[in-house]
Write a protein that binds this DNA or RNA. Structure first.
Lengths: 249, 249
DNA sequence: GTATATCTTGCATGAATTTGCGGTTTTTTG
DNA sequence: CAAAAAACCGCAAATTCATGCAAGATATAC
């Protein structure tokens, strides 16, 4: 990876997350801490970022925009995203849905990753295209304004033509009895199709949504291969799911 | 391998992968590092690529670095977008391409407008979905990293199924002799399909690109119904086009 | 056809950039 | 206060860059 490329990537990350941690960057980009520090120093000299102990902040962050609530949910989703990223390997073919958790996943993909990502979510696609090495495939159709993903029969039949290694879904509700559920009929149709087209289903959700229910069922728990939350894998809240054979991360 | 051939190859690689590494090129083409360096220097002087330590990047990668230039172009594009918006009426079915000018158009749509917009450009779709009243249709397929629009046969055949009232295209070059031209083969295929599927073709461009040429032809001037630039309609630069029967705005 | 001029390429040299490592200092945290 | 983490400093190895120069290729003029 070229130095200029690296600087652009770091700046992108800073603007995206409002902060970066040196150790994370050096691990993601696979260079030494010193190199990252020098990069941050350079960007700071140019006024692009604000360097702090352990990393750097976005200059706009200095004006104190965000509320603590947002930061809280953000942290959880960041943790979930990082766990999810650890499952992805070079060369994989990956279906993803939409939602803020998946956006965070897209933002957390290490720059060295070479893989193919398929999605119908416009905001998620928007994140994918700024990644240097991944192939992006957009699922086309009418876009649902509500969920910002493409929906409809055409989209479903396109998904059916695929066979992906993994499918990452951000989910809105899950419980033992009814499995995964949601409240938008069109979105559920898409999710069902994605589940059928992937070898492995990985569900992402913040723990708040564990043991809740929505009107429309997406699939039951037996379809889920892996469940990722911000909690440690041995949290009691997750044990019932572990016992039904779901891998917990 | 001839020098001209080599330059074309390098430029193609840059546009394809968004970056090239000097050492890779010299090995692939089997010439010395110096030759490659001189080639990159020449292409950089011509503004085709951006030379960095160790290789070169696509000019589209320039986003995070330069802002002052973009603000200047921004004003022009804002004017163009506003002229374009005046053509759009409620209920229309509108095909649009990609590019910064079209993004500006998307941002300039009045909130009260009810119409249907179709595009394959991820950034443009991203703007459309935040509009309260328009219907959005995404064209799906592999996404070209360079242009950030969907490309490929599937996308083209989807476009062919449509019949739109108007097609708005941001163009990269236009002159009397060769009409509209561009430098990315895949993008040109998409543009051609869009032109064929619309009743009326409206081309948007900043005046800088008037009377310039790129390697690949998109269509000739007779196909254009309306041409919009930031200049007043009676500017002498535009008169030749007016005389060939194009409406100038 | 020959001679001249121009262009292109590879090589040598030296300067500049980039990067990782070890050792030291500073900051953070419990 | 003490351990751990991060920052800083200088150095050395590797890579890349810039430049001049000479040999070969190509074009042009006579």
């Amino acid at each position: 990876m070229l130095k200029t490329e690296r600087l652009a990537y770091i700046l992108h990350q800073v603007n995206l997350h409002n902060k970066v941690i040196s150790a994370d960057l050096s691990q993601q980009i696979d260079v030494s801490d010193d190199t990252i520090r020098r990069d941050l120093q350079q960007l700071a000299d140019e006024g692009k970022i604000i360097k702090v102990h352990g990393g750097a902040l976005s200059p706009s962050f200095h004006h104190g925009i965000n509320t603590s609530q947002e930061v809280y949910a953000y942290r959880q989703k960041k943790i979930i995203a990082q766990k999810a990223v650890s499952l992805i390997e070079d060369g994989m073919f990956i279906l993803t849905g939409g939602g803020t958790t998946i956006i965070e996943l897209a933002r957390s993909l290490p720059p060295s990753l070479h893989a193919t990502f398929i999605s119908g979510s416009i905001p998620v696609l928007f994140e994918y295209i700024s990644h240097p090495n991944i192939e992006v495939i957009a699922i086309g159709e009418k876009v649902s304004k509500n969920s910002k993903i493409t929906v409809g029969l055409e989209a479903i039949s396109k998904i059916r033509e695929l066979r992906a290694d993994m499918c990452f879904l951000g989910i809105n509700a899950i419980n033992q009895q009814h499995g995964v559920s949601d409240n938008d009929w069109e979105v559920v149709q898409i999710k069902k199709a994605m589940i059928e087209s992937a070898n492995r289903l990985i569900c992402l959700t913040i723990s708040e949504k564990i043991n809740s229910q929505q009107p429309i069922q997406v699939c039951d728990c037996s379809k889920i291969d892996t469940l990722i939350t911000e909690l440690p894998a041995d949290d009691p809240l997750l044990q019932p799911y572990r016992h039904s054979g779901i891998q917990i991360l």
